[in-house]
Simulated assay, not measured.
Amino acid sequence: MKTGILCIHGFTGGPYEVQPFVDYLEANTDWQIVVPTLPGHGEILELKSLTAESWMMAAEQALRMLQKEVDRVYVVGFSMGGIIAIYLALRYKIDKMVLLSAAAKYINPAQLLHDIGDVAKKIVEGKSEENTLFQIYSKKLRATPIPAALEFVRLVKMVEPYYEQITIPVCLVQGKKDGIVPYTAAPFLFDHIKSTNKQLIFSDSGKHHICYSDDCQNWFPQALAFLREEVQEKIC
């Protein structure tokens, strides 16, 4: 039985956001992995005039193409991509999901201020170029139109009423130091999703870009074991 994985990145991001986990999956499985770039996203942001439907439809198209080539599909969604993954699971046959920093809630003010404080300190010390967070925030603030940000919020609101319709196996991974998605978002989703097979993994040191967390080598194997569990069950 051939397995495929669709990995969906977050708002204003790109495939690089999930690349470390993709690399781990490629090194440890023979699964077919697809990581599309959502419209207007990637290294250069061009989000003007794009809508929530643009991103959802692009993910749908990638999923349908993958489904034609494999027997079983798993979806990995990061941040906004996690919400899009839930949307896809409501409409298509998906065997399992892994939701990374899923944006069921967004903006953790306390942690965001702490991170910005770290950035400010680096600027004063003349080391801002060494701070990845500074580069990410400065780039996104310059390139993200307000209407696009509102579309992101609208996408989350569109899917929110349907969390309880999710019954497929789900693994949620959340960093406790996330400055964008509060770590309470994962327990919120865990409680509302009606899956009987669900798992919640916390990263104590993880920030929003959870695939780059210091402890990712701890949770990467856990997430893969969760995905493999179903394969073993179906073989037996």
Rank of each mutant, 00 (worst) to 15 (best):
R91Y: 05
T12L: 00
R154P: 11
S205T: 15
K122R: 06
S138G: 11
K207C: 05
G81D: 08
L50I: 00
T12P: 06
L141S: 15
Q232V: 10
L6S: 05
A52S: 09
D23P: 06
I86Y: 03
A85D: 09
E46W: 00
H9P: 03
Q174I: 08
D23S: 15
I193E: 03
I201N: 12
H192P: 06
F226M: 01
F21L: 14
I193N: 03
K122P: 00
E43T: 12
A225M: 04
E233W: 07
I123D: 00
A58Y: 02
H209V: 14
L25D: 03
A89V: 11
G13M: 06
R91N: 13
A225E: 12
A59W: 01
N108D: 08
D95H: 10
T196M: 13
Y74G: 11
E43V: 11
L63T: 10
R142Q: 15
I5D: 01
M56P: 01
A89T: 12
A102T: 05
I123V: 13
G42M: 01
F188Y: 13
P109T: 02
K96P: 10
V70L: 06
V34C: 03
K93T: 15
M65K: 10
L66E: 09
Y137R: 05
A102H: 00
K127C: 11
V35R: 02
I210R: 02
K157W: 06
H114G: 04
G10P: 10
A185S: 15
S101W: 05
L88F: 09
F188C: 03
S138Q: 14
S49P: 00
R72P: 13
H41Q: 06
T167W: 01
P161T: 02
